[in-house]
Nucleic acid binder design. Structure first.
Length: 909
RNA sequence: GGGGUUAUAGCUCAGUUGGUCAGAGCGUUACGUUGACAUCGUAAAGGUCGAUGGUUCGAGCCCAUUUAACCCCACCA
């Protein structure tokens, strides 16, 4: 490919035109597909599948970044690298969207019926499901789209079914009546993990129940008076002296005059309130347990859509019991009479009013308490007793705890290990059935004739026992049940595919810490159970995106950042970099347009640095690696520093310090490469020594090529584009090889000399700035160098002239008198003088030098203190002591030189 | 109630196993357009690393106590 004429390169980097073109080139070239090599360890990540309902938001961008960085790094390293993308059917979220769409047409789910409704969801999916996947491409994700999966596609549905049947056969899935979390808004059960607790203002209602045997009133407190109609006991503690006389007595429930027993139970805490607690087994998890201990009846008073039950529900329930299809575990439904049909909130008001009228309300005490809400719709959760399917967690959790304790699964940062273990060690059975239509239908078939239940891999229509007609369970599975299988279901399981054998277990799983319980934990035990191996070795956690003030981004606050808009304006690379740079693993990221702009500017910097390099390549044929003999001091310094940064970035990536690697790259490219090296190289490039020029060209291209490679995982588009312009490039950057440090370029000594030169340049600039010398006014730079460095300084004259505005450089012997009327400074490598004639004010000169002297003296006393400390000398490592000694010598020398200079100036006064 | 995170320059944050008189970006100030880049350059100002005590020759980093903010988990009637 011919080198691009640099005149065609725009002065300003314009991402918009190139990103789409480059992405298309990558995708069509097959660069995203792994090169499977037998015996070579692959690097695999599965992408957390975004919901098909999703619109790309900046949280997705943050989610993809660490993955794409690692994937691109490993691909360049030469590992067989696979990143599997896909989408999640998102049972509730999607169903809600489609129901809403129907509502606009005046239709309900029931109007359509199950089959037609599902057709509508698939239509919806066809229309919108691909949207998020197209949007992800704009971020530059380099996943293998040919392996894209969907949690509801045929293969994954098979995996779900296989898993369900496996667990059922092992007795790890069971069906039963249990206390579950019910969302009256979504009208489905949800798992414990899906309940979010919110602090809410509420009341403590102190109410009075009359005791039948003694006629006295006992006081108890409740936060939910509307549940009292479902009370089937009152509990006191057996040890409670206050109530010993009530053992065996009963109370008459006001409002409905139901007689219920007073039971003795440890749940009643003597130290809390009055020590008396009402027991509503059908609507409170604690009371449910108490009820089971005492064989109390369960009375349900709420409907599944959040109203008080009435005659209709009660009759239905009675019929069910009469038909024998209800079990003893099923609550009896109460006709709540005058309260029937009220919402629970309305009932609360009415019941409190009626109790007040009866004189049964003693007092109301305001309090704030944690209320469970649904993570989807944020409505209050009602605990209900309901027949559901559960995964038995204890046997599954055990190995999932083990793998972490044995270090087979490592969390980054490791504090999340504790979060994970705490959950895994205490988790309760997982309620997996959902009263929805969109999702994987539970493969359980019921025979009404013989009452048997059959869980099968293939659908059946006849009862295997009696040949009677069977019907399938109406419910579907929790959407997380299918995503729990993602690391192996996407590779073809339960089929024994080549992909599965090669890419399982995965290498890394990266996700936000907010889905550790929903997803990560469940993948671990599912992988262990179905595959016998932990699904990944490393769990790399990231945080949440916040706005500039640290608030969560939300629609209501309007503080969101639209990634598509940002990409349009600043480019995907700028967005990507701003999400990664300086972010410690697992911590939240603040985002703002200003921040993204900063890294757009960085992209522009690289663009222009490359433009500069290309402008200076006329007639240049790169040989690949610069050889030592013709290299200038600055070239050697650059090559040495490049070695350093290659090692540093590689180490950082290996240890998952992605934010650190980005910071290092930013600093290195801007400061070392652009501000220093390019500026110095201009001397050779514009000089009349063709060999020196060639060496600078060689170095410039070598280092620039390497830097583009190092930066590529973070800023894939601009680096790919620039790489294509470089002389000597081959193929695409995305599939090029990761740079390695070249030991022949470890020019340590030359680099030190260069640093001494740089120090003089800084000092000279400082002097000029302080003396307010116009930048365009050149002046003689007089050096009194340390003898060992004079040669290096003479070689660096061009840099002094170019970077320190020196008109010429003169040298003084160590014992020569210092020039008069000069601004001066002292560096370890040399004293420098800039004769500025009348501009020099001796008093100011002395003042400034005194400041420097003070600093140097401070350093001397610090180093001396250290070296005089017996403990330090005895215990510190030898290298450190040597270093300290060297520093002391240096500082002492400085003190002497500065003091001498001051003395000299004093005498001039 | 249990667990966790954070506290470093005006703002946002780095600082990897304790060892170069504490770093960056933005902001501020002063200069500056000499053909890569004003989406830029040069220089400067600015911090007793939340507080107290301890371990150590040596602490921003380790330990204890403490203050403040935030987060997660938990069935507190």
């Amino acid at each position: 490919m011919e080198n691009m004429n640099t005149f065609e390169m725009a002065k300003v980097y314009a991402p918009k035109e190139m990103e789409e073109r480059i992405y298309k080139m990558w995708e069509e070239s097959g660069a995203f597909k792994p090169k499977m090599v037998k015996g070579k360890k692959p690097f695999t990540i599965v992408m957390p599948p975004p919901n098909i309902t999703g619109q790309l938001h900046v949280g997705h961008a943050l989610d993809e970044m660490p993955q794409d960085v690692l994937i691109r790094y490993h691909r360049m390293k030469g590992d067989p690298t696979l990143w599997v993308p896909g989408t999640d059917h998102a049972a509730i979220a999607t169903e809600v969207k489609v129901v809403e769409a129907l509502q606009k047409e005046g239709l309900t789910k029931k109007d359509l019926g199950r089959e037609k409704f599902l057709d509508r969801v698939w239509d919806w999916r066809k229309e919108y499901g691909g949207r998020i996947v197209q949007q992800l491409r704009k971020l530059g994700v380099s996943c293998d789209w040919s392996r894209e999966r969907f949690t509801m596609d045929a293969g994954l549905s098979k995996a779900v079914r296989e898993t369900f049947v496996n667990l059922y056969e092992k007795d790890l899935i069971y069906q039963g009546w249990r206390m579950i979390n019910w969302c009256p808004c979504c009208k489905t059960s949800i798992s414990d993990a899906e309940v979010e607790y919110e602090e809410q203002a509420g009341n403590f209602w102190h109410i009075l129940y009359p005791v039948k045997e003694t006629g006295e009133m006992i006081e108890l407190a409740t936060t939910r008076p509307e549940t009292m109609l479902g009370d089937t006991a009152v509990a006191i503690n057996a040890e409670d002296e206050r109530y010993k006389h009530l053992h065996g007595c009963h109370v008459i429930l006001p409002l409905i005059n139901r007689e219920i027993p007073i039971v003795l139970d440890e749940h009643a805490d003597m130290t809390k309130g009055t020590g008396v607690v009402k027991i509503t087994p059908a609507h409170d998890p604690n009371d449910y347990e108490v009820g089971k201990r005492h064989g109390l009846p369960m009375v349900r008073v709420f409907t599944y859509d959040g109203h008080m039950t009435g005659a209709a529900e009660a009759k239905e329930n009675a019929d069910l019991i009469a038909s024998g299809r209800a079990t003893k575990d099923e609550p009896v439904v109460l006709d709540c009479g005058k309260y029937a049909g009220m919402t629970t909130q309305e009932a609360r008001k009415a019941i409190v009013a009626d109790m007040t009228e009866l004189g049964c309300l003693k007092k109301v005490e305001p309090l704030t308490h944690e209320v469970g809400t649904c993570y989807r719709c944020h409505q209050t959760i009602e605990p209900m007793v309901s027949k559901q399917w559960f995964v038995k967690m204890e046997p599954l959790a055990k190995p999932a705890v083990q793998v972490v304790k044995e270090g087979k699964l490592r969390f980054i940062p490791d504090r999340f290990e504790k979060v994970y273990l705490n959950w895994m060690e205490n988790t309760r059975d997982w309620c997996i059935s959902r009263q929805l239509w969109w999702g994987h239908r539970i493969p359980a078939f019921y025979c009404d004739d013989c009452g048997s239940v059959h869980v099968t891999r293939e659908d059946i229509d006849k009862c295997p026992n009696c040949g009677g007609k069977v019907w399938q369970d109406e419910d579907v599975l929790d959407t997380w049940f299918s995503s729990a299988l993602w690391p192996f279901s996407t590779l073809g399981w339960p089929e024994k595919t080549e992909d599965l054998a090669y890419f399982y277990p995965n290498s890394v799983l990266s996700c936000g810490y907010d889905i550790i319980f929903f997803w990560l934990a469940r993948m671990v035990f599912s992988g262990l159970e179905q595959m016998g191996e932990c699904p990944f070795e490393v769990a790399l956690m990231h945080g949440l995106v916040r706005d500039a003030q640290g608030r969560k981004m939300s629609k209501s606050l309007g503080n969101g950042i639209d990634p598509l808009e940002v990409i349009e304006k600043y480019g995907a690379d700028a967005l990507r970099f701003s999400l990664e740079i300086g972010v410690a693993p697992g911590s939240d990221v603040r985002m703002s347009h200003e921040k993204i702009e900063t890294y757009r500017n960085f992209a522009n910097k690289i663009w222009n640095a490359s433009r500069f390099a290309l402008m200076n390549m006329q007639g240049f044929e790169p040989k690949g690696v610069p050889s030592a003999d013709k290299l200038a001091l600055s070239d050697k310094w650059m090559l040495k520093r490049f070695n350093d940064i290659v090692r540093e970035i590689t180490n950082n990536l290996e240890s998952f310090d992605l934010g650190m690697a980005a910071t290092n790259l930013y600093d290195f490219i801007w400061s070392n490469f652009c501000d220093w090296y390019i500026e110095m190289a201009k001397h050779e490039l514009n000089g009349d020594d063709p060999e020196a020029k060639n060496a600078a060209q060689e170095t410039l291209i070598y280092v620039l090529t390497g830097l583009l490679k190092l930066l590529h995982p973070y800023m894939p588009f601009i680096t790919e584009e620039l790489y294509s312009y470089l002389p000597g490039h081959e193929g695409m950057l995305i599939t090029s090889s990761w740079p390695a440090a070249n030991p022949e370029h470890d020019f340590t000594e030359d680099a030190e000399q260069m640093e001494a030169v740089m120090e003089i340049i800084r000092a000279a600039r400082n002097l000029r700035a302080e003396m307010k010398v116009n930048a365009s006014k050149r002046a003689t730079l007089i050096l009194k160098p340390a003898p060992a460095l004079e040669k290096a300084f003479r070689a660096a004259e061009g840099y002094f002239m170019r970077l320190a505005a020196a008109s010429n450089v003169e040298y003084l012997a160590p014992d020569a008198p210092n020039p008069e009327k000069s601004a001066s400074a002292v560096t370890p490598g040399a004293s420098l003088f800039i004769p500025l004639g009348e501009l020099v004010d001796v008093d100011k000169e002395i003042a400034r030098l005194n400041k420097d002297l003070k600093n140097a003296e401070g350093e001397v006393s610090r180093a001396e203190g250290k070296l005089n400390n017996q403990g330090f000398v005895a215990k510190a490592p030898a290298a450190l002591i040597e270093q300290e000694k060297a520093k002391l010598e240096k500082a002492k020398g400085l003190v002497l030189s500065i003091a001498e200079r001051i003395k000299e100036l004093e005498s001039l006064k």
